[in-house]
């Protein structure tokens, strides 16, 4: 539906393409694995479950054309090797993998390990953010990942302008903007995460930021809007007796950023792949038709618009 005056950068990592004008590429869908207590000790049952999730996501990805990326949650050093090798053994060999690591020191260790096993170029780094520390900077310089998700979370100012500031100049919290830090580390590809916030914390700015940032920098952008739904206080109670209503909101929320031009969604637990892939494929069909009919966008053959008649 939208078309940006700023030229839109399209990135390609392995067999995954992302970005461009709305409709040019199917929305990339990141499903998270290994997040949760039951996966901590890597029990055979838990691993079997994840094996099934990855297979289902891949099958849906092939069917719809929406690239499915494994977002691997890593919460401790001991988990790095097991989790990376488990996923790498199960996804196509030219498919990027995403590492979702909340702690700076641990992110540095993940980068080192990825360098050692030779998968840095396949790595989507989630995320380069305000929590960055010196050790992480050094690790980034030594083993730059193929792509960094750059997080526009600014606790001082959650408006769109505030989110842009942290990316552009560090908002007084960092010496330089996160985009420059990524460039200096020679990270070849960057994608923006506008940083989902809970309701009553400038939530809508998460969505507003997407077209504004895309029109400013031309970089692929998206967010993990399921986090807003997950933190919705009223829903926390309601979902106890109305699980289907929660799932509807959880999945449906992803239409908001995509309609505003988002190139990817981090959709939460990969167990929801069965709901999210057909849903986003449908949204992509709307967007692609709008782009093709009005702006003359060329829709690729692998797009849900072409695959799912």
């Amino acid at each position: 539906m939208l078309n940006f005056s700023k030229e839109q950068i399209k990135i390609k990592i392995g067999d995954m393409s992302m970005g461009g004008q709305p409709g040019e590429s199917p929305t990339v869908l990141f499903g998270t694995v290994f997040y949760g207590k039951k996966y901590i000790d890597h029990s055979p049952e838990a691993m079997e479950e994840i094996d099934g999730f990855i297979a289902t996501q891949e099958e849906l990805s092939q069917m719809t054309g929406n690239p499915g990326i494994c977002d691997i949650f890593i919460g401790s050093e001991e988990q790095i090797e097991t989790r990376l090798s488990f996923v790498l053994d199960r996804v196509p060999e030219n498919r990027p993998i995403c590492v979702d690591v909340p702690e700076s020191e641990l992110r540095a260790k993940v980068l080192d390990h990825a360098g050692e096993i030779g998968v840095s170029k396949r790595l989507i780094y989630n995320s380069l953010n305000l929590g960055l520390e010196e050790m992480e900077k050094e690790a980034l310089a030594a083993n730059p990942p193929g792509c960094a998700i750059v997080l526009g979370y600014n606790p001082k100012n959650m408006s769109t302008d505030g989110r842009m500031e942290i990316l552009e100049n560090g908002a007084g919290l960092l010496d330089q903007g996160l985009l420059d830090i990524a460039k200096e580390a020679n990270i070849p590809n960057m994608i923006i995460d506008t940083g989902a916030t809970p309701f009553d914390h400038n939530t809508a700015e998460t969505i507003r930021s997407i077209p504004v940032m895309k029109n400013k920098w031309g970089l692929p952008a998206g967010c993990a809007i399921h986090n807003t739904v997950e933190s919705w206080l009223w829903m926390k109670d309601y979902r106890k007796t109305h699980r289907e209503a929660y799932l509807t909101c959880d999945v449906g929320a992803n239409a908001l950023p995509v309609m505003m031009g988002a190139d990817y969604c981090v959709y939460g637990p990969m167990r929801n792949a069965g709901q999210i892939f057909p849903f986003i494929a449908m949204v992509d069909k709307f967007i692609a038709e709008g782009g093709e009919d009005y702006f003359g966008i060329e829709i690729p053959e692998n797009h849900p618009k072409r695959r799912l008649k």
């Binding site: 702690e103 953010n129 305000l130």
Partner: peptide
């Protein structure tokens, strides 16, 4: 800057 001194969390501000 509002950062919690010594905190190891993701974005401790």
């Amino acid at each position: 800057n509002g950062r919690i001194s010594g905190a190891k969390g993701a974005v401790p501000f």
